[in-house]
Design a binder for these strands. Structure first.
Lengths: 220, 220
DNA sequence: CGTACTCTCAAACGTACGTTTGATTCAAAC
DNA sequence: GTTTGAATCAAACGTACGTTTGAGAGTACG
């Protein structure tokens, strides 16, 4: 072996497992993709998953962590630029939230697959996974909810979280399907998604602005 | 098979299985909910599923058929009222498509659960299930696509199907989450969903009207 | 009564799953 | 040269799955 300066190369066992798992989870779901499929696709031994990650659940978490760390950093960076400003519109906050995810779905090397994994996570209401995401990235949601609350003072905190969850799920699903369609597209695909993202944002803004529904039973 | 007047009552074995399967598929997915869970919840013997339905896949199909027959009949009835009319708007066709589903999510007796099952079906790209839905209800999609095409003459047939799929998936997901949230709501929930549906429709209309993307130049 | 038929039941079938084990490899450290 | 420890491997573990079986209960009808 030509002892290169990079100890953990892109083609290390761990990385190959993560890549294969990401692709197979996107296609077959977390329960539907078996470790035997994953290790066969990654061309590693079956036991490698439990050796390097400990369990299938931990592997799933690592698939998320690898992408979400950067995704949410970008979200917070974008949010930081508009936080507290007077002229901030609802659409600006939504843009800070979904634009990094849209960019991710455009990257090579599994980004598009990961967006589909994200959509899976929303569809499956896996409690373990929910807990992991809440523990590790809940502060991001909280910061966005706070900023949304600033622009929507008439909505209760709880109501804002509900709507954010619905909006995020619908957006994620739409983005995931963009990723599938991407294969058949040509150069104009980028423009299509750019324009579609604008529509998604305006849709989400309309849903969030919706004044009706009361979550406090006493106040009627 | 003597046609007894009340042979298949609401509490028959078949109906109890269908109800339990619907609820468990909504919560745990098709792969995640086992026949042992289903039969235990329905309080029937494990073998009853294979006796009455033949297999788990056939049971899944029957869960869909029980609801989709009426759902799509209502969709076609609503579409028939506006087909070919000059003053038809995109929003009218979308209303004909998603309003029956929204009504279904409001019904008692598992309708809300079924909408979540529908969302599952969209998230999982199960080929067997896709085939079944396409074979049995593809004509509905085709009729709607034809009417959409009439109002969107600049879009290729294929492009219309893509966008319909994305839009339907996002709408279904949103409606499914409405179903989950429903529990915590009071009387105003109906108004909320009514208003939210209007936003969903306008969002979908905007996405469908989007003129960009060219699928035509390259033949592939 | 006997026959026929539908439905239910406990038990077992074979398969696939996630996980664990113990041996083996191999390069670096001593 | 020996030791060490990380990494890989084939094989097996116990469990849960969908499905099948064959016996039996219940009902209808001559």
């Amino acid at each position: 072996m030509t002892s290169a300066p990079y100890a953990s190369r892109e083609h290390s066992t761990k990385e190959r497992i993560l890549g294969a798992a990401e692709a197979l989870f996107a296609t077959h779901g977390f329960a539907g993709a078996s470790l035997r499929q994953v290790t066969a696709a990654a061309r590693v031994n079956l036991a490698a998953v439990n050796y390097h990650f400990g369990s299938k659940d931990k592997l799933i978490e690592e698939v998320f962590r690898r992408r979400l760390d950067e995704l949410n950093s970008r979200r917070l960076a974008a949010l930081g630029k508009i936080t507290g400003q007077d002229e901030t519109q609802l659409e600006d906050i939504l843009d800070a939230y979904i634009r990094p995810a849209l960019d991710l779905s455009r990257t090579d090397g599994g980004g598009a697959a990961f967006v589909r994994v994200l959509a899976r996570a929303y569809a499956e209401h896996n409690e373990t996974l929910r807990r992991f995401l809440s523990d590790n990235y809940g502060h991001v949601l909280r910061q966005f909810a706070a900023e949304f609350g600033r622009l929507l003072p008439s909505l209760a905190k709880e109501e804002i979280y509900w709507r954010l969850d619905i909006v995020t799920g619908a957006l994620t699903y739409a983005m995931a399907d963009f990723g599938i369609i991407q294969r058949k597209s040509d150069v104009a695909e980028r423009d299509h998604r750019e324009a579609a993202a604008d529509h998604l944002i305006s849709f989400a803004a309309a849903g969030l602005r919706n004044p009706s529904v009361s979550t406090s039973p006493a106040t009627r």
